[in-house]
């Protein structure tokens, strides 16, 4: 499994490189380091979200409510910042993360204790969270002039040549790598995705592990809520509407298997970067943003075909050893 994915990651990295070179030929300057860093920065939020989604998908579930969770958590801290600008921004970041965690835990509890399929639960909470935004904000927007200076700057401050926003993504990716590869929890997440029955027999609590995966995706969505509002300097009901599909697309393009059990931190990041590069490249070479949707759609289908092919290959190998006996 890991070998197939490794090569998949290399392939995807190659595709992204080729893409960047091809676009540079049409639009010189695209490959300038500043521009590439800009693309990375623009993709940071998607990368963070894709990591959370990946953890959930590996456990054979799915979190459709991430974008609504993001918007709701973002709106909560936006309103607080507008009303009490003296509250330090790091507190608000923690609060956004905590709100997201609670919303994620709500999803997780329903999936764990009531055994409702994740797709149904999160489809419900997707609309519930959206509806709550409207309720708590009284249907109004929080406009740019309402935010404190710090609130806006905490994603923009330059640190070692990169904006803080990029650093958040880098640090979270690093922590996530440790979580998935070096902790018992990460191992359990993979194990229940690959074979839930055997995992039960090995003493792993499948329901609890799934619940924790939802808490993780929720917390990351909540944190991204602050990042989004700070970056785009707006809080509204429409924030990140429909973005849940982009998050899932990033995972699938990266090679995270919707059937569970397969996916790495690198794959989720590369899937997000691919979408990020497409998104910034097309306007540069004068292709309409609607083509962007078609291209990411095509990328998803190609990724799924590649997934299906790699798993079919595995079946053939088993048969070969069988006939060799």
């Amino acid at each position: 499994m890991s070998r197939i994915l490794k090569t998949r990651e290399i392939w995807l990295a190659l595709v992204i490189t080729v893409l960047i070179i091809a676009i540079t030929l049409r639009a010189p300057g695209f490959a300038r380091p500043e521009n590439l860093f800009e693309i990375f920065n623009n993709t940071s939020i998607l990368m963070i979200l894709a990591l959370g989604q990946m953890a959930v998908i590996i456990t054979r579930s799915i979190d459709l409510s991430m974008a609504s969770n993001l918007a709701l958590s973002g709106m909560i801290v936006a309103l607080i910042n507008a009303a009490y600008p003296q509250i330090p921004v790091p507190m608000l970041m923690l609060l956004a993360t905590f709100c997201g965690l609670v919303f994620g835990a709500f999803n997780g509890i329903l999936v764990w204790k009531l055994g409702i399929p994740a797709i149904v639960v999160t489809l419900g909470t997707l609309t519930i969270f959206r509806g709550l935004i409207f309720q708590i904000a009284g249907g109004k927007w929080v406009n740019a002039d309402k935010f404190s200076e710090d609130f806006v700057q905490y994603t923009r401050i330059d640190f070692l040549g990169l904006p803080l926003l990029s650093w958040y993504a880098i640090v979270i990716a690093g922590l996530f790598f440790l979580l998935m590869t070096r902790t018992p929890l990460g191992r359990s997440i993979y194990a229940i995705g690959v074979n839930p029955v055997a995992s039960v027999y090995a003493g792993i609590d499948v329901g609890r592990t799934t619940f924790i995966a939802f808490c993780i995706s929720g917390a990351l969505a909540g944190f991204s809520g602050y990042l989004w509002v700070s970056r785009f300097v707006i809080g509204s009901v429409q924030v990140a509407a429909g973005y849940e599909l982009t998050i899932i697309a990033a995972c699938v393009i990266g090679g995270v298997s919707i059937a569970g059990g397969i996916g790495t931190v690198g794959s989720a990041l590369l899937g997000a970067l691919f979408l990020g590069v497409i998104g910034s490249a097309l306007p540069v070479i004068n292709i309409s943003p609607f083509w962007q949707m078609a291209i990411s759609g095509a990328a998803i289908i190609i990724a799924v075909i590649l997934n299906a092919r790699s798993s079919r290959q595995k079946g053939r190998i088993i048969l070969k050893t069988g006939s060799a006996k």
């Binding site: 499994m1 191992r187 194990a191 690959v194 074979n195 055997a198 090995a202 397969i262």
Partner: peptide, 18 residues
């Protein structure tokens, strides 16, 4: 196959799982 080994995990991870 169903309840015992986790076929898509390496041997050492199977052994350490519990």
């Amino acid at each position: 196959g169903q309840q015992g080994v986790v076929t898509d995990l390496p041997i050492y991870q199977n052994i350490s799982l519990p």
